[in-house]
Simulated scan of single mutants.
Amino acid sequence: MTWLLLAEAAVPEGGLFDLDATLPLMAVQVVLLTFLLNSLFFRPVGKVVEDREGYITTSLADSKQKLEQVQRLEAELTEQLRGARQAAQAAILEAEQEVDNLYREAIATTEADANRTREKARREIETQREQAQSQLMSKVDEFSTKIIQRLLAVS
């Protein structure tokens, strides 16, 4: 209280700095204001800033980990895709070869069947020709005998 009374005492007008009780009172006010501001505003704000900085640092580290994991997964999937493409190409090539082999086998079988059928038809034709020729020969013999008999009967 005495400090307040001294501060309210009439201040003589004078120089740049008066050395009365105002100077220590102002110093005490500055220290008190600094203490209050520090405890009420700066510490909570500093804590929020530190918490936010910690959150950002943690988020950044998590993001880097996730990015590395994504890059690893991408590399694995790329490798799996490359393997799948190679397997598909191999399967296509194998299927093409199998189709080609089946085609060649079908052609060979068809040619063999055609040759057998042609040979069978040739043999049948040969048999029928021989039969026709023998029938023709017997008819020729028969006709010649009749012609000879008629010639002999006429003469």
Rank of each mutant, 00 (worst) to 15 (best):
L4E: 09
L4P: 03
A7T: 04
E8T: 10
A9P: 00
A9I: 05
G14F: 08
G14N: 08
G15A: 10
F17N: 01
D18Q: 06
L19G: 03
L19Y: 02
D20N: 02
L25M: 10
Q29I: 07
V30L: 14
V30D: 09
V31R: 00
T34M: 09
N38Y: 13
P44G: 10
P44H: 14
V45L: 11
V45H: 13
V45R: 15
G46D: 12
V48L: 05
V49R: 00
E50G: 02
D51L: 09
R52D: 12
E53R: 07
G54K: 03
Y55R: 03
Y55W: 10
T57Q: 05
T57P: 00
T57E: 12
S63D: 03
S63K: 05
K64Y: 07
L67W: 01
L67N: 02
Q69H: 06
Q69P: 00
E76Y: 03
L77S: 13
Q80P: 01
R82I: 10
G83S: 05
A84P: 07
Q86Y: 00
Q86G: 06
L93E: 10
E94C: 04
A95E: 11
Q97C: 04
Q97E: 10
V99Q: 09
V99C: 05
V99W: 01
R104D: 05
A106Y: 01
I107E: 07
T110Y: 06
N115H: 13
N115P: 05
N115L: 10
T117V: 12
E119S: 14
K120R: 05
K120M: 12
K120Y: 12
A121L: 12
A121W: 07
R123Y: 15
E124H: 13
E126A: 03
Q128S: 14
Q128V: 14
R129T: 14
A132F: 06
S134W: 02
Q135M: 05
L136E: 12
L136T: 14
K139P: 01
K139Y: 07
D141W: 15
E142A: 12
F143N: 11
S144D: 11
T145Q: 04
K146D: 14
K146W: 11
I147H: 01
Q149F: 08
V154H: 15
S155A: 04
